[in-house]
Amino acid sequence: MFDKGKVIAGIVIFFVILLIPFWYNAVTGKAGYAPELKPGTDAKECVEKTSFMKEKHTELLTKWKEAVVRNGEREYRASNGKTYVMSLTGTCMGCHTNKEQFCDRCHNYTNVKPYCWDCHNVPKVVKK
C-alpha cells in the first residue's frame, strides 16, 4: 500500500466521525436511555387515543388553533364523544399539569423545541 500512514489515518478519522452515534452515548452514559413520562392527571385517557396523541398531537393542536383563531369555534368533539374546550393552556395543561415531567421530557428526548410558550402560559405546578 502506498502512503500507508496517511491512508490509514484517513480511514480512521472517517470512521470515528461516522460512528459518533455508537460511542457518543457510551461516553455520556445514556446508552439505551428513555425518559419516564408522568401525564400528571388521574384521568384515564387523553383527548384522543394515546397512539394518535403520540404521533399526531401537533396535528390536533394545529386544528385547534385554526378552529379557534380563524373560525371562532371553541368546542371540540373528540372521537369518543366527549367535548373539550380547545385551549392549549387550559385543556392540555389542565390535565398534564407538570410540563417538565411530561411534554418537556419527551421533547428534550427527541429534541423538539416548541416555541408556543413564547406567548402561551404554562400553569404553575401545584405541589401535591
Binding site: P21, F22, N25, A26, K30, A31, G32, Y33, A34, S51, K54, E55, C106, Y109, T110, V112
Partner: peptide, 14 residues
C-alpha cells in the same frame, strides 16, 4: 412516534 424511534435507535446503537 418519534419517541419510540429514538428509543429504538439508542437500543440498536448500544
Amino acid at each position: 412516534d418519534l419517541m419510540e424511534v429514538k428509543r429504538f435507535f439508542l437500543g440498536i446503537l448500544s
